Simulated scan of single mutants.
Amino acid sequence: MISLHGPHGPVDHGVLKAGGGLPEHAVWIDLLDPTEEEARQVEAATGIRVPSRAALSEVESSSRLRRLKNGGLSLSSPMITFDRTDLALKPLGFVLTKEHLVTIRFADLRSYETVKTRVAEHDGDCTTSVDIFLLVIEELVDGLADTLEEMSSDLGQLSTRIFDFDPAAKPGSDNGSRGSPKRRDLALRRLLRSIGRQGKSLAKVRASLLGLERIVPFVKDSCPQALGFGEEESPRFDTLSRDIASLDEFETRQSETLQFLLDAALGLINIEQNNAFRVLTVVSVVGIPPTLIASMYGMNFKHMPELEWAYGYPYGLALIALSALLPILIFRIKGWV
């Protein structure tokens, strides 16, 4: 889908669809998941080659940040979709010249809608292609900041779930009765899945920040005269660079917190495993003395003193019970069970 925008808001693009030139005052050409036909229409109207999705997905810096022969710039970066229910990375492209800004995207990003509203309402500088480019980058950075703030809140809730994890109580019970191993296992699995989802989301935000972190200084340092901006735009580039750097630091702290929570969850799992092994160890130790006594009195020798006792059988049973209870008592005194 093609949408055209100028300093005063949306521009009628019927002429472009009919195969004519670009409408007057159209500065920003926004392509949402463009078809080959739409890309050819833009190329015919502006003389700007629209990069394909495959080209925008290239990972090397030389492909993501390029100077064009006409003095413009071709820029690309992965960008999250800002949909927390299905956070994904999609390629995002910019072709920036002195006269026009062409944006290519493959997801409906709310930051772009905000920019279009700001341009229509004259909220900020939006006269030139560079002005609109800066507006887009600013809104993308704001969107990434909002996403990181939401993730920080999610990590706080996740931390509460981990450190308030009580394996000795059933979910929803107030009597402290011990939950089943299956319930505890499912709870720990949910924690690990939550940590994994947060880790994947942070990795995608990190990739988006890295792309913008490379784009901003590249545009600032690349042919400012050819793009038609001067010293008045320089503070905006500097502010964007500082904002991205601060978000990068914040994301690093979030990643460290997530790693700490992962270690804590794995520690809980180790405790659960140790508890299981401890139970098995206690059972095996408790079962050894009775087995020894029963095997000793089960030997079929002719001369056994206890064989003729009237109370030999109760004596044997009592000795077996005592040999089983004594280790349990010792374990209880030492606090092992």
Rank of each mutant, 00 (worst) to 15 (best):
130 V>S: 00
123 D>M: 03
43 E>W: 15
57 S>Y: 13
279 V>Q: 06
99 E>Y: 08
65 L>T: 05
4 L>P: 04
122 H>C: 02
325 L>P: 09
68 L>M: 10
153 S>V: 04
209 L>A: 01
176 G>T: 08
205 V>F: 05
141 V>Q: 01
257 T>R: 14
235 P>H: 02
255 S>G: 08
52 S>A: 11
200 K>C: 02
77 S>I: 01
39 A>T: 10
6 G>I: 13
56 L>I: 01
154 D>M: 09
143 G>A: 04
23 P>L: 11
288 I>P: 10
110 R>Q: 04
284 S>R: 12
122 H>R: 13
299 M>K: 00
250 F>T: 04
313 Y>M: 05
23 P>R: 05
296 M>V: 12
91 P>H: 11
15 V>Y: 05
243 D>K: 10
248 D>G: 07
208 S>C: 11
174 D>G: 08
242 R>S: 06
335 G>W: 14
91 P>L: 05
129 S>M: 11
134 L>T: 01
78 P>K: 01
271 I>S: 02
276 A>E: 13
236 R>F: 03
31 L>T: 02
159 S>R: 04
34 P>N: 12
176 G>R: 11
38 E>Q: 15
84 R>D: 15
284 S>E: 10
176 G>L: 10
144 L>Y: 09
10 P>M: 04
256 E>H: 14
330 I>W: 15
160 T>W: 12
103 T>Q: 03
201 S>L: 02
270 N>H: 04
163 F>W: 15
109 L>R: 07
104 I>D: 09
151 M>Y: 10
203 A>M: 07
69 K>I: 08
29 I>D: 00
298 G>R: 01
167 P>F: 03
252 T>W: 09
59 V>R: 15
337 V>N: 07
329 L>R: 08
39 A>M: 15
285 V>F: 06
108 D>G: 12
94 F>W: 09
235 P>S: 09
97 T>S: 12
295 S>D: 11
203 A>T: 05
265 A>H: 07
328 I>R: 06
148 L>W: 03
287 G>H: 14
156 G>D: 15
208 S>I: 11
69 K>V: 10
168 A>L: 14
285 V>S: 08
155 L>D: 07
93 G>N: 08
142 D>L: 05
120 A>N: 09
73 L>T: 01
98 K>D: 10
190 R>G: 07
242 R>L: 07
127 T>W: 07
31 L>M: 07
314 P>S: 06
143 G>I: 06
74 S>V: 00
278 R>H: 13
108 D>W: 05
95 V>I: 13
195 I>Q: 05
44 A>F: 14
311 Y>D: 07
41 Q>P: 01
70 N>E: 08
246 S>K: 13
138 E>I: 00
269 I>W: 00
96 L>E: 06
333 I>N: 03
174 D>T: 09
136 V>I: 15
13 H>F: 11
151 M>T: 07
6 G>N: 13
159 S>H: 09
